[in-house]
Design a protein around this nucleic acid. Structure first.
Length: 643
RNA sequence: GCUGCUGUAGCUCAGUGGUAGAGCGCGUCAUUGGUAAUGACGAGGUCGGGAGUUCAAUUCUCCCCAGCAGCACCA
C-alpha cells in the first residue's frame, strides 16, 4: 500500500483503495452513479459524517442513502436549519438557539420579542421551499473558539455565543454555511439544501424555556414534520388525524362516559357508562389483590397539618396539596395527596411481630393533588383520583422477593387488561429534593437494581426522577399520540418507616424498623382508564364494555319477543339494552356501532317465530343466526372477567 | 406557572358593532323498515364570567375562569 493511498472497508467486508483525501462523494461516485445520487452522508468507522469529509486514513465506511432511517433523521435536522434560515430572512432580529430532529420531525427554538403565530407558517414554508430549491451546499468549517464567540456576539446571537462558551475546552467548534447563512452545528448535514426535499410541513408554535429551565427566558418554538416524500408526509398527517379520533376526551363525550366542567377543574363527573367500566375494573383489582394475600384498608381523606409535617409532605409537597382552614384547632388540615402516611397508621395500630411480615395492605384511596393549570389533561392528569395503592411492610430479607412479586403482579394485571405489550419500565433514582440518608438511598436503589435483573422487562434509567422519599420503578404507557404516562409504580422506601416510627418485634425480641414498599398497579384509576380508552379506541373488551349487548328490533311486530331476549340477557348478568325505537334497522346498527357496543342481537318476525337472534359483532358486518339460549350462554361465557 | 390559541343550542361548528344560524341530537306526527343515518314539522341560546369604549357589544379593549398544543412540573 503506497503512503498516499487509503484502504476503505465496505459493509460487505470487501476493500477498496483510494487516494488519501478522497471523500464519501468520491467513493460513492466510484461505486455507481445511482448510489452517488442517493447518497446523503457517510458513516466512517461507525460515525456519521458529511459526504464532503476528506478521508485520510484506512477505515470502514458505509454510504448512507436518503431513504434510510439515518437519512431521514438528517432530512429532519436539515429541515430545522432551513427553517431557521427562512425565519431569519423573514423576521430579521430573531435569534436562533437550538433546533434538533425529533421523532417524526424537528423543531427550532427562536428568541424574538414577538412570538410567532401559525399564520406566519405559510410565509415561512414558502421561504423554506425557496432555500431548498436553491440547493445551497452545506459547507463545514471549523472555527477558533474565541473568534466564533465574537462572531456570534457581533451578529447579536447571544444564545449561540452562550452555547459555544459552554462547550468543553477541547471540543471542535464547527459551523455550517448554507449559502450566506451560518449556524453553529455539530453536523453532519446533507450535501445540499435541495436534499431536504419538499415533504415538510410546519405544525405548531409553542413556548419553550431556554435550556428547559423555567427560570430562563421563554423562547418561541416552531414544530415541523419532514419526510422523504409527499406520500410519507401525507400518511403521517392521516395517522395523526386517526390518532386524534382515539382521544379519550372525545370518546368519553361521544360514548357518554364522563364529563368535566369549569366548577371542578381536574375532577371527573363520571356518567353511568363510564362508572360501569370503572367499577368493573375496581372489582377485578380487588379480586386480584385478595388472591395475592393483601388485606384492604381505608384511611381518612383530610388530616391535620402536623401529621403532614411528620411525614415530610408539608416541607416537600405542600405546593401540591389542598389546604383547608380549620378554626377549631388553629392548624390547617390538608386533603391527602398520598395514602402512605395514613396506611402507616394502620400498621402502627398494633405492635407488630416479624411473624406478620410481609404485611400487604391495599388501599384504593382517593387522593387530591393541586396541579399547575397547564398540567391538567383530561383523565390523564386530574386533581382528584383513586390510586390502587398498597404498602408492603417487610424485613430486609424479604424485600427483594416482595418487589419481584409486585412486578410480576403488575405484569399479570396488564396482561389481563391487554396492555402488557405497551409497558416501558423507568428506573427513577434519587432526586435533588429528598429526605433521608445517602446510605438508605444506596440500599434502596441497589435493591431495585437487583430486581431489574430478575424481571424480564425492558427498562430505561430515569436519573433523578425518584420520589422525595424513595427511588422507584415506574410502569409507563403511551396515549394515542405517543405521549407517555406513568401508571404503575413500585417504590422502595427506607425513609417513611423511620419518620413515622414504624417497628416490629424481631425473632430476637428486639424492635426493628421495617421496610415499606409503595406500589400501585394501575396507578391512578382515572389515568389508566384514559390510556385504556385510547388503546382500545373505545372498543373495550366485552367484560368491561358498559353496554355489552343491545337487542334491536327490525319491526314493531318483534317488540314482545325482543323484551324476552332482553330479559334473558339480564338474567344471565349481561349488561344489555333494549332498542325498540321506531327506527330502521340500519339506523340502529349504525348508532350502536358508533357507540362501540360489542354485540348486537337483531330480532324481527323471523327470529320471533324461530326463537333465535341474528348476531352482529362490533367490527364486522357478518351475521349469524343462533338459538336464543345458545346465544345468551355464549355471550355470558365470553363476558367473564379475566379473573 | 410560562408561550400561543380557543370558549356561540345537549354535541360539532358557522357568523355579525344594531340582542344569532347550520348539521346532528331532542320532541311530535307519518312511515313497519332486514344490518352503518326514512321524511315532515317543532322546541331549544343571558354567544364562558366581569369591567371598559360606544347611542348600541356576542362582535372592539382589559381582567378573570376553563379548555387545547407545547414547555416547565408530575411524590
Amino acid at each position: 500500500m503506497s503512503s498516499n493511498n487509503v484502504t476503505v472497508t465496505m459493509p460487505d467486508n470487501s476493500t477498496r483503495e483510494y487516494m488519501q483525501g478522497t471523500t464519501g462523494t468520491g467513493i460513492a461516485e466510484d461505486i455507481s452513479k445511482s448510489l452517488a445520487k442517493q447518497a446523503v452522508a457517510v458513516k466512517i468507522n461507525g460515525k456519521l459524517c458529511d459526504m464532503s469529509l476528506s478521508i485520510e486514513q484506512d477505515c470502514s465506511i458505509e454510504i448512507i442513502k436518503r431513504d434510510s432511517e439515518e437519512g431521514l433523521e438528517l432530512i429532519r435536522h436539515d429541515a430545522a436549519h432551513v427553517m431557521a434560515q427562512a425565519v431569519q430572512n423573514i423576521f430579521p432580529g430573531t435569534q436562533v438557539t437550538i433546533g434538533p430532529a425529533i421523532e417524526n420531525g424537528f423543531y427550532y427554538d427562536f428568541a424574538r420579542n414577538e412570538p410567532f403565530s401559525t399564520e406566519d407558517f405559510a410565509a415561512i414554508e414558502k421561504e423554506m421551499h425557496k432555500i431548498v430549491e436553491r440547493g445551497d451546499v452545506f459547507v463545514r468549517e471549523e472555527w477558533d473558539r474565541k473568534e466564533a464567540i465574537a462572531y456570534f456576539k457581533d451578529k447579536g446571537e447571544m444564545y449561540k455565543a452562550e452555547l459555544i462558551e459552554d462547550l468543553p475546552e477541547d471540543e471542535v467548534i464547527s459551523v455550517y454555511r448554507q449559502g450566506d447563512w451560518v449556524d453553529l452545528c455539530r453536523g453532519p448535514h446533507l450535501p445540499t439544501t435541495k436534499h431536504v426535499g419538499t415533504a415538510f410541513k410546519l405544525l405548531k408554535v409553542a413556548g419553550a424555556y431556554w435550556r428547559g429551565d423555567s427560570n430562563n427566558a421563554m423562547l418561541s418554538r416552531i414544530y415541523g414534520t419532514a419526510w422523504r416524500d409527499e406520500k410519507e408526509l401525507k400518511a403521517y398527517l392521516t395517522q395523526i388525524e386517526e390518532a386524534e379520533k382515539r382521544d379519550h376526551r372525545k370518546l368519553g363525550n361521544e360514548m357518554d362516559l364522563f364529563h368535566f366542567q369549569d366548577e371542578a377543574p381536574g375532577q371527573v363527573f363520571w356518567h353511568d357508562k363510564g362508572w360501569t367500566i370503572y367499577t368493573e375494573l375496581m372489582s377485578y383489582m380487588r379480586r386480584k389483590v385478595k388472591s395475592k394475600g393483601y388485606q384492604e384498608i381505608n384511611t381518612p381523606q383530610m388530616l391535620d397539618s402536623r401529621f403532614w409535617q411528620a411525614s415530610g409532605h408539608w416541607d416537600k409537597y405542600r405546593e401540591n396539596m389542598f389546604i383547608i382552614e380549620n378554626a377549631e384547632t388553629d392548624n390547617p388540615a390538608a386533603l391527602k395527596p398520598m395514602s402512605c402516611p395514613g396506611g402507616a397508621q394502620v400498621y402502627k395500630a398494633h405492635l407488630r411481630s416479624y411473624r406478620e411480615l410481609p404485611l400487604r395492605m391495599a388501599e384504593f384511596g382517593r387522593v387530591f393533588r393541586k396541579e399547575a393549570s397547564g398540567a391538567r389533561h383530561g383523565l390523564m392528569r386530574v386533581q382528584a383520583f383513586t390510586q390502587d395503592d398498597a404498602h408492603i411492610f417487610c424485613t430486609h430479607d424479604q424485600l427483594e422477593d416482595e418487589v419481584v412479586a409486585m412486578c410480576d403482579l403488575i405484569k399479570e394485571v396488564y396482561t389481563d387488561l391487554g396492555m402488557a405489550e405497551s409497558i416501558t419500565v423507568h428506573f427513577a433514582t434519587r432526586p435533588e429534593q429528598r429526605i433521608g440518608s445517602e446510605e438508605d438511598w444506596d440500599r434502596a436503589e441497589n435493591a431495585l437494581r437487583k430486581v431489574l435483573d430478575r424481571i424480564d422487562m425492558k427498562w430505561v434509567i430515569n436519573e433523578g426522577d425518584g420520589a422525595f422519599y424513595a427511588p422507584k420503578l415506574d410502569f409507563v404507557l403511551e396515549d394515542a399520540i405517543g405521549r407517555q404516562w406513568q401508571c404503575g409504580t413500585v417504590q422502595v422506601d427506607m425513609n417513611m418507616p423511620r419518620r413515622m416510627t414504624l417497628e416490629y418485634v424481631g425473632e430476637d425480641g428486639e424492635r426493628h424498623v421495617p421496610h415499606m414498599v409503595h406500589r400501585a398497579i394501575l396507578g391512578s384509576v382515572e389515568r389508566f382508564l384514559g390510556v385504556m380508552t385510547e388503546h382500545y379506541a373505545g372498543k373495550f373488551p366485552l367484560w368491561l364494555a358498559p353496554v355489552q349487548c343491545v337487542v334491536a328490533t327490525v319491526t314493531g311486530k318483534a317488540d314482545e319477543y325482543a323484551s324476552e331476549v332482553y330479559e334473558a340477557l339480564k338474567a344471565a348478568g349481561i349488561r344489555a339494552e333494549l332498542d325498540i325505537r321506531n327506527e330502521k334497522i340500519n339506523y340502529k346498527v349504525r348508532e350502536h356501532s358508533v357507540q362501540k357496543v360489542p354485540a348486537l342481537f337483531v330480532v324481527g318476525a323471523r327470529e320471533a317465530d324461530e326463537k333465535t337472534v341474528a348476531i352482529r359483532r362490533l367490527g364486522s358486518d357478518a351475521q349469524s343466526v343462533v338459538g336464543l339460549d345458545e346465544a345468551v350462554d355464549a355471550l355470558k361465557k365470553e363476558a367473564r372477567a379475566p379473573y
